[in-house]
Design a protein around this nucleic acid. Structure first.
Length: 425
DNA sequence: TCTGGGGTCCTAGGACCC
DNA sequence: TCTGGGGTCCTAGGACCC
């Protein structure tokens, strides 16, 4: 069995320009027009349609730096609408899952599958899947296929450059030299800026060079992860698919403020809200937390202002999952790191050392907070039924002067009853 | 004026112990 | 003044991903 599996092909299905494509699905007037989608606070470009990529506008650039291009090319701008993107993503994942049980949802717009051997022609399987996803959702996808996740990712990269056919590209032992030589090391999954630099210094420029590199040498001078990359380029599986419903090992919630904030009262509101949201996420995967991190930082782009950033971990005597206990611990951390006299731009809460509820130990000195746990669960139910933050804690504050700007939001076509498309005749 | 958010994994180095 | 060495455990921070 395992020897058969070792030999199966892996595919990655990757949505093209996903957020921009989602905006187009319900607004066909946007077809062929340049589109960008912005981060929270309408700050940075986090998604671009092909037209925008062709203009050379990079990922992550702050929108104020490209105002002139927006004018000239009539670029359509959207605030990010994650409830819409999440809903379309779920539909696409269901389509993939219906034909293949071994699926890893890798991100909102990507999934790996182990191609079932009953599909004797992987390219044909992938082409049919791609067409089906487009017909059923309107989202175009590209599919890369290889013996390992890394090779599938490389093939996917090539498919977006028009190599292969119909946005499907397969790498196997017959064509890999030719294809890998066309891929720069920086375009390999797991090779970032720093590793790229090291590899180039050592004469390794493309994916084929890296395939031929000595794995022991790579591990000694880089990391074990990089060694796995070399093995995977050679068709040896080192990175397994992670199947559904893996519980998270850390949970974080953070936001930049829409303006600079100095007073601790407002920051306490923000930290309490992040702690509360983190606690909800924690309960939704049935976990408890035993260490709570809090951080606070000034605007690193404002060289003219004094800078300050700090992170602190608060160890809990007993694992918790109730909102009030988690807020209390987060505020305790905040008190230790807050310094007056700075203009703050961002803060956040990170829950680490998570354990599953059935592993929580009883303690004589710190009895479980069963009453608080029950209250939190009741609040979750109410908020799920009537909308987020229907019930919230007083310390989260009333006015959200610190919270985000979303001035270019598209309607929630699929998830909000009030915003369904209506057809006028 | 205006610069995202949420993850995973690895490693160097400190703390501590014998 | 001189001032071991090896092991484990933990954590902050970096690199990378989407």
């Amino acid at each position: 069995m395992s020897s058969i599996r070792q030999d199966n092909f892996i595919a990655i299905i990757d949505c093209n320009n996903f957020y921009a494509s989602c905006e187009r699905v319900f607004n066909p007037k946007l077809n062929k027009k340049p589109i960008i989608v912005l981060s929270n606070n309408d700050g940075c470009v986090i998604a671009r349609s092909q037209e925008v990529k062709d203009l050379g506008i990079p990922m992550g650039i702050p929108v104020f730096k490209i105002r002139h291009l927006v004018e000239i090319y009539d670029i359509q701008i959207f605030s990010s609408n994650f409830s819409l993107y999440g809903d379309i993503s779920n539909r696409i994942m269901s389509i993939i899952r219906s034909g293949n049980s071994e699926i890893e949802v890798y991100s909102i717009d990507e999934a790996f599958v182990t191609i079932n051997p009953r599909y004797t022609d992987p390219v044909e399987y992938a082409t049919k899947l791609r067409n089906k996803i487009y017909q059923w959702t309107g989202i175009p996808v590209s599919i890369g296929i290889g013996k390992t996740k890394t090779l599938a990712k490389v093939a996917n990269h090539l498919s977006k450059r028009g190599i292969g056919k119909d946005n499907v590209c397969l790498i196997d032992s017959k064509n890999d030299q030719n294809l890998l030589q066309q891929v720069k090391v920086h375009d390999i999954w797991g090779v970032g800026r720093r590793k790229q630099k090291f590899l180039k210094i050592n004469g390794i420029y493309n994916a084929y060079d890296l395939k031929l590199a000595n794995p022991q040498w790579i591990q000694k001078h880089m990391t074990v992860i990089s060694r796995h990359t070399v093995d995977e380029l050679n068709g040896i599986k080192k990175i397994e698919l992670e199947y559904e419903n893996a519980t998270k090992k850390s949970i974080s919630t953070s936001r930049s403020f829409s303006r600079m904030i100095s007073d601790i009262t407002t920051i306490r509101n923000a930290i309490s809200s992040h702690a509360s949201r983190s606690a909800e996420k924690l309960r939704s995967q049935d976990s408890f937390v035993s260490s709570i991190g809090v951080y606070l930082c000034t605007n690193r782009f404002r060289a003219d202002l004094p800078q300050y950033r700090r992170y602190i971990n608060v160890q809990l005597p007993i694992a918790l999952n109730d909102t009030s206990g988690i807020i209390d611990a987060a505020l305790e951390g905040l008190n230790k790191i807050y310094k007056s006299g700075y203009e703050y731009k961002k803060c956040g809460v990170i829950l680490t050392k998570l354990i599953q509820s059935n592993e929580v130990q009883q303690s004589l000195f710190h009895p479980r907070r069963e009453k608080d746990e029950k209250i939190s669960k009741s609040i979750d139910k109410i908020n799920q039924a009537f909308g987020a933050d229907t019930i919230r804690y007083a310390v989260q504050g009333q006015n959200e002067s610190w919270s985000i700007k979303r001035e270019k939001l598209s309607p929630s076509y699929t998830t909000n009853w009030n915003e369904f498309l209506s057809v006028e005749t």
